[in-house]
Nucleic acid binder design. Structure first.
Lengths: 190, 190
DNA sequence: ATCGGGAGAGAACGAGCGTTCTCCCTCGTT
DNA sequence: AACGAGGGAGAACGCTCGTTCTCTCCCGAT
């Protein structure tokens, strides 16, 4: 019974996503992914010719999921300031997910950034994408210096992600939102 | 020629500190530490009976160094608000160190937090220590809600650390400082 | 019915790791 | 001088991992 290529690929990616995120990339062997995906080792290597490529695909998928989740929260608001605050609603929702373990890119960067230039690059790109999104939001909200406000919001967000991951509490999202409100009060025209 | 125990231990810790921080914990083998410390493998295992113990010692040492560096920057100021801002001077100085690779605790947590409860615990403790220090500073500065201000400052700091590590630029320290000034302006009595 | 290609299961391989063991040398004590 | 404890160098061991190979079976084409 041959499973078609597209669904096999999806099963592998699903398993990789779950295991890599849950336990860390280096702690998960290709055989664990084979077992979790139900695909043969041979097929696995046909779909992803090396673990490195699978890691890249995992991170690419994470980036896609992440952007989509963020976008959905942004779409819930129309007023510019509300849209900025929606970023922190997104974080809050993310942190309370049962399997939340921090940012896959920060984690992978800590694990492999020094060893794999590709992983370091993907992490950089992911964060640059977030920065761009926040800059757009700040600009639309009428910030005098959108780059500055965006950078401040990034710091709050990234800080909330790592603090929440390490402490195991979702509270940093609320704190970040509070601080964002205060900063917007100063950085946006009344 | 027998080196005395204390200096041998120090040489091992120095080597472990450099290599673990530079390349990540899992990427560095015990043999690499032996080679870098100039100590025999036998002695190494007499000093640290397992790699786990060595990792613990590495993190404990990092925590000590970190607290000391922070304290030195705090000591450079006496006025309460200046002392809070000194935290960001500390970050700025840290980020511009040639070998800066982010926070050892965040990195180790990303690598091993899901696998080693001890590492997760040490990361938690380190961050709790930082939180305590900031709470004291906020209280001394007269914040109406010292916990809140401390949490906001933590988010900025942690965000700056990871953003600076991934982007490779020290600029997040300046941004964090800017944001801290704005937040203090709102959260501290005039 | 037969043949061939592809897929699955898992053994095999080579490398690297953490840890232990062996062997030999040194050196302080008697 | 003889001896024994201890230390250095590195081989060895057992395990895991990424990757490849072998063998077998199934299934569609002829």
């Amino acid at each position: 019974m041959a499973i078609d290529t597209a669904t096999a690929q999806q099963q592998v990616l699903d398993a990789a996503d779950r295991l890599f995120y849950e336990r860390g990339v280096q702690a998960v062997g290709m055989d664990a992914i084979r077992a979790a995906s139900g695909v043969s080792l041979k097929r696995l290597y046909q779909l992803f010719p090396s673990k490195d490529k699978l890691i890249e695909a995992y991170l690419a998928g994470r980036n896609r999921q992440w952007e989509q989740m963020l976008q959905e929260h942004l779409d819930a608001a129309t007023e510019p300031r509300e849209r900025i605050l929606a970023v922190f609603d997104f974080l809050s929702a993310w942190f309370t997910q049962r399997d939340f373990r921090g940012c896959a890119f920060i984690n992978s960067f800590g694990e492999l950034g020094a060893i794999s230039p590709r992983v370091a690059e993907l992490a950089k790109q992911h964060k640059a994408g977030f920065r761009q999104a926040l800059t757009d939001l700040a600009q639309t909200a009428g910030a005098a210096d959108p780059d500055q406000l965006a950078d401040h919001l990034i710091l709050l967000s990234e800080g909330a992600i790592t603090t929440s991951a390490i402490s195991g509490s979702p509270k940093p999202a609320e704190r970040a939102r509070e601080a964002a409100v205060l900063l917007m009060r100063v950085s946006l025209p009344t």
